[in-house]
Design a protein around this nucleic acid. Sequence first.
DNA 1: GATTTTTAGTCAGTATACTGACTAAAATAG
DNA 2: CTATTTTAGTCAGTATACTGACTAAAAATC
Lengths: 170, 170
Amino acid sequence: MAVARSQPAPSARPQPAGPLEPVELDISQMVGHLLRACQQLHLAIWSDNFPGGLTSPQFAVLHALALGGPLNQTVLRSHARLDRSSAADVVRRLVARRLVSQVKDPADARRRVVRLTAAGRAVHAEGTARAQRVNEAMLQGFGEAERAQVVELLQSLLHHHRGLLDYQED
Amino acid sequence: MAVARSQPAPSARPQPAGPLEPVELDISQMVGHLLRACQQLHLAIWSDNFPGGLTSPQFAVLHALALGGPLNQTVLRSHARLDRSSAADVVRRLVARRLVSQVKDPADARRRVVRLTAAGRAVHAEGTARAQRVNEAMLQGFGEAERAQVVELLQSLLHHHRGLLDYQED
DNA sequence: GATTTTTAGTCAGTATACTGACTAAAATAG
DNA sequence: CTATTTTAGTCAGTATACTGACTAAAAATC
């Protein structure tokens, strides 16, 4: 595949001792770079609002369980948007904190069904308000229309690539 | 700080055996959840385009050095949007791969100046085209106007919180 | 000039997120 | 029914990203 190569193009002004290859790339406009920075921001805001140490993926797991009853890891990770290894890690930590419990599925010995404990349900209920505050803080400075745009554009971006992530569905 | 507590509110329809606390939270519309999923997507696309194993933060460091000459870690991490520990980690791996080198700053013994090696400059030059392909792939499915919106909204989001991240500037 | 504070960077420890290899069980093919 | 394949989950290893504690050097203060 012929990589797009920038031709020399007779330049009018000779650049004074810059790098030899023409760097025509503004990294601050690259979606990946922006997403990474936004995630760092989100983590900072999240941590401020969850002094107990519950992380966003952990909350996503609790939320999926609160909505959809006991789930095996495969269904759980598709709801919480976690890959296999990460889901196992997150569940392991939630088990250690006694927020969820795991039991073998009698109908399928491969599956281990994850269930909220009473403590887990309480932490989820209390966390819901915090999660909403985090979302509000993230969107602070945007008007209603822009908030909707942010959500729609990110959802569209994901939708354009549905099936690429291993937990897919959608 | 009085946490917003959902009052019972005389409900017209009794919900059939749902969870006790009213779960009025759509996690698929939370910005943080969407950002995390988009980053997973970006990582998948990036890895496809960089079979050599160069990561996006690593490329960001090479790019900052290619643009701005030798830099100490503090300036470097503000350009590459990395916190102190992560920047040290990334630089350590780039040193191990011989893509950058570090020397003590004679003017300030605290600083260790990072510089591109010839190999690093070559990897950066070659990676620029790949990074552009990743960006294009991420935005595939969007029109010109929407692409601009995505970039502008994410930049605005970051701008609204400038100063919150420790590498700040901006 | 001596003390205090700030700054640059390291280090240990933890949490996602990934890969690839692996086990065990279920589903399918023959 | 047996052999193959698929599925569920684990495990080891690596890369960001963070916290908090720490060292050493520079800057600021007195």
